[in-house]
Structure formats: structure tokens, C-alpha cells
Nucleic acid binder design. Structure first.
Length: 446
RNA sequence: UCCACAGUAGCUCAACGGCAGAGCAACCGGCUGUUAACCGGUGGGUUCCAGGUUCGAAUCCUGGCUGUGGAGCCA
């Protein structure tokens, strides 16, 4: 009985008789010769059936296989540079035995082009496609690398609830649900709970889905996204920027080490990834506004001039973020935003309360904001006053206000959007490919 | 919520006021080295829905539905 192997390990089995279990990715019919691409989730291998090498029934089966039929193939591993579709490339299996598990019905996703709507309707099948396979493998490594770095640097993962009694920030729209006759909301951030946990464990993070019910319909928005949120006691804004750039540099280097095949499949420009190394540029909001004004003045395109229009105090739109990020070859931090356009809990800058100790990280190539964070207000009177000002219910935040009574300390934290980071690292046109099953304004199926 | 565009065979599209078509996929046949193979053949339609204009509507008009791209908001 041949040994069952993973296709990813095929190089270790040259000359041996092996068994591969998987699905028919593609088949080329050459008469007495059949080229069958079999994928098993770990890779793809070209399996060759030659009529004189097997009994009639087996060859008949091989020559009838439909796309995505499930099969168990046994045969001898050979090196062949013509096996270009194989992953890893250059290996093929000369079929001796072939067991059909199920002959697939006509498969909707052909090797030709398809539209977005069709592919998203068939997302449960689309994930089998090579490009999606590559992206989702990179996503998994990104998630692992990010949490691994935090784990290795003294952070404790402390999970925060998804069902919550109140908003975590005053600005965004929440999904509300019925909680035994009372209203509850799907968490939009774990941050407030992180602040409680940070006081118990010092350095913590949470990694879970966050939910935003905003009617956003852009290439950067999901209703449900995976949110990585570290929070650290006594950390300053500057130290936090150090953490962010170390964390991302590490994650990108892990992906470059591990996923050469996948990056080649999605045709990612590796030069763009190689420059993702600490330190990243750091500019103030003030400077960013000046840069935008200068850009708007320089450009001859009236439309672009209009898009880049900005006055101090206004938040950046997506054209602004793109224009700023384009000036750098790696992500750029923009810090000290106006307090008025940021969340209520952000610490004002000493002697300049109109701006706060906040920082966003803008990815290059127009991918926009991938992290946002700040030092949090730790003075009990000030946080109380901010809650008063924006008019949110004090009862719902009583526990949060408690944190400022019992050993309050300066602290900071940030949130990173996993899908936006995947989209940027993979150079994707839209965030919908960066998550297995995207939840969007017009889509919750499949 | 606003702006723009689109909806025709399983898929990607053409036909733009006058017989609804092609490529791919499927099915049948041929081929020993294919790489989105190639060659020959077969089947495949409520032209998103409802009204209207017209001798005649996939095509023009009105309304609706669905989707896509962008804006705002955000990670």
C-alpha cells in the first residue's frame, strides 16, 4: 500500500510510490494520455494517466473525470520540469491506481473569467480557486505572525465579549440584537474591556471579529472584520508606534519567508514588500495638512485639486490618505489629530488640548488606514467630563469609569484591521477577497 | 444616504428599432507531453420585473428590483 502524502511534501518522495487524496483541479485530454491536475489543499500535482500503463476501466475513469471530482490517486513521483502547474512546480505522478470517490456535477467556476457577483455568490466554491487559496493561506500566516509577535513580547491574549451592553465608541453604528427582551449590541471594538484587562495583566491584546453597521460600500469596508487590539499600561504614543512598526515588519517578513509560491500566484510585487521595514515615517496631523495643501497647490488637475482640498480640523478622506501615503515607500504614521474628530477617550496633548495623542497608520499604494490608536485619558475627572459632553449614558459606562478610580495609569493601545492588512500585503483590489466569507452591505450569503 | 454604471444561454460578452449570436463550460468523436491545449460535431434563451411608445422593443420612455464602482464614515 502506497504511503499517503501531502502534495506540499512531494519533493521528499521522488521515485517512491505514493497516494494523493484530493480533487481534480483541471484535466487535459490527449487521447491515450490524460493530464490531471490534482489538488489536496496543500498543493497541486500533475498526475499523468497513460492508457497502456493501466487496466481499461481505470483509464476510462481517468479520461472521464470532471472538474472538482474527488479522487484517490496512487503512482510514482517523478521530476519533470514540464509540470509547470504543479505546486511545488516540477513534480508529477505517473498514475498506477485511481479511485473515484465522487464524480462531480458540472462545476460552475470554469478556468475562464467570471464577474464579481457570480464569484461571491459561489464563494463557498471560489475558495478552492488557486488565487483565493493563496490569499487565505497568507491571511492565516499574517494572523499567526501578529499574535506570535505579541505573545513573544510579553502580551497576554485576553478575549473580550462580542455581545455587549453599549457602544465602545460614540461614532459608529451598531448591530443591535434582542437579549431576552433587552437590547444588546455586537461589539465594534474590544478596547474598553482591554483597558480593564490591561490593568490586570499589564500588556494584553484581543483578537476577534468586530461589527460595524455603517452603510459603507467601498473596497475597504466589511460589516464583520477581524480586529487585533493591543493595550499596554504605561505605554506612550511614541512607544506604541515602535510596537506597531516592529509588529508589522515581523509579520511581512514571515509572509515573505513562508509564502513565495502564494505571492507568485497573486503576482505581488515583492519589491514593495521588501521595503516594509522599521522604522516607518512619522508626521503630525499638522504636517499632513500642510503636505496636502502643497499637493493641492501643485497639481494642475482641477478634479484632484478639489479632492485634496482640506482645512485644519477636518478629517482625512480617502483621497487625502492616498495622497499622503504615496509620498512614502512604507507605511506612515500620522499623529496628533484634532480631538474633535477622534473618540472621546483620547488623551489631549499637554498645552494643546485641541489635538490628541492619537495615531493612524496609513498603508502605501492607496490602501489607507490599517491601524488607529491613542493614549487614553486616565484622569477620572477628565474622562467623566468627556462622557458628559458627548451625552452617552453614564450607567452603561460605570464599570469603565471604575477603571479610573482604582489605580489609573497612563496607557495606550491600537486596533488593526486584519482584512485591510491582508488586502495591502497581497495587493488586492478589494477587501472581499481577504476574508473567507465577506459580510458586506449587500451580502450575507453564503 | 448621495453620484455614476450595469442586468441577454451555466459563465464572459455581442447584437442598440427589423430572424437573439459568439467564445468558454457541458455532451459525442479524434489525438503520447498538455499548461486557459488543439480539431470536428450536438444540445442550450421568460433578453431582471411591471407598465408604456411603436406596424414591430433585448434595444426607446416611466417606475421598481438586484448588483457593481465611487463618495461620506471607519479598521
Amino acid at each position: 500500500m502506497a504511503q499517503v502524502i501531502s502534495i506540499s511534501e512531494i519533493a521528499d518522495h521522488v521515485g517512491q510510490e505514493v497516494m494523493v487524496r484530493g480533487w481534480v483541479y483541471d484535466r487535459t485530454d490527449k487521447g491515450k494520455l490524460q493530464f490531471i491536475q490534482v489538488r489536496d489543499g496543500s498543493g497541486i500535482v500533475q498526475c499523468v494517466a497513460y492508457k497502456p500503463d493501466m487496466d481499461e476501466a481505470t483509464f476510462e475513469t481517468a479520461s472521464k473525470l470532471t472538474q472538482e471530482s474527488s479522487v484517490i490517486v496512487s503512482g510514482t513521483v517523478k521530476v519533470n520540469e514540464k509540470a509547470k502547474k504543479s505546486i511545488p512546480a516540477g513534480y508529477e505522478i505517473g498514475i498506477q491506481g485511481l479511485q473515484l470517490v465522487q464524480m462531480a456535477e458540472e462545476y460552475p467556476i470554469t478556468p475562464k473569467e467570471h464577474g464579481v457577483e457570480f464569484l461571491m455568490d459561489n464563494r463557498h466554491l471560489w475558495v478552492r480557486s488557486l488565487r483565493q487559496w493563496a490569499i487565505l493561506r497568507i491571511r492565516a500566516t499574517l494572523a499567526r505572525a501578529l499574535t506570535e509577535w505579541l505573545d513573544d513580547h510579553g502580551y497576554l491574549r485576553v478575549d473580550t465579549p462580542i455581545l455587549t451592553p453599549a457602544a465602545g465608541e460614540e461614532t459608529t453604528t451598531l448591530f443591535s440584537i434582542d437579549y431576552f427582551g433587552e437590547s444588546a449590541y455586537l461589539s465594534q471594538t474590544g478596547q474598553l474591556y482591554n483597558e480593564a484587562n490591561m490593568m490586570a495583566f499589564g500588556k494584553v491584546y484581543t483578537f476577534s471579529p468586530s461589527f460595524r453597521a455603517e452603510k459603507s460600500k467601498t473596497r475597504r469596508h466589511l460589516m464583520e472584520f477581524w480586529h487585533l487590539e493591543p493595550e499596554v499600561a504605561f505605554m506612550s504614543l511614541e512607544e506604541m508606534m515602535d510596537v506597531e512598526e516592529q509588529l508589522l515588519s515581523y509579520a511581512v517578513s514571515r509572509i515573505m519567508d513562508k509564502h513565495q509560491h502564494e505571492l507568485a500566484i497573486i503576482e505581488r510585487d515583492l519589491g514593495k514588500l521588501e521595503s516594509i521595514k522599521a522604522p516607518f515615517a512619522r508626521i503630525t496631523y499638522d504636517e499632513a495638512v500642510e503636505r496636502l495643501k502643497a499637493l493641492a497647490a501643485q497639481t494642475d488637475d482641477p478634479e484632484q485639486k478639489q479632492l485634496l482640498q482640506i482645512e485644519w480640523g477636518e478629517d482625512f478622506g480617502s483621497p487625502h490618505e492616498t495622497a499622503i501615503a504615496e509620498q512614502f515607500d512604507r507605511p506612515v504614521f500620522v499623529y496628533h489629530y484634532p480631538s474633535a474628530i477622534k473618540a472621546f477617550y483620547m488623551q489631549p496633548v499637554d498645552g494643546r488640548p485641541e489635538v490628541c495623542r492619537s495615531v493612524d497608520l496609513l498603508a502605501p499604494e492607496g490602501y489607507g488606514e490599517i491601524t488607529g490608536g491613542s493614549e487614553r485619558i486616565y484622569d477620572p475627572a477628565l474622562i467623566d467630563q468627556r462622557i458628559e459632553t458627548i451625552g452617552i449614558t453614564r450607567e452603561a459606562y460605570a464599570w469603565y469609569l471604575d477603571l479610573r478610580k482604582y489605580g489609573s495609569v497612563p496607557h495606550a493601545g491600537f486596533g488593526l484591521g486584519l482584512e485591510r492588512t491582508v488586502t495591502w500585503i497581497c495587493g488586492l483590489p478589494h477587501v472581499r477577497e481577504a476574508i473567507p466569507y465577506a459580510r458586506m452591505l449587500n451580502r450575507k450569503y453564503p
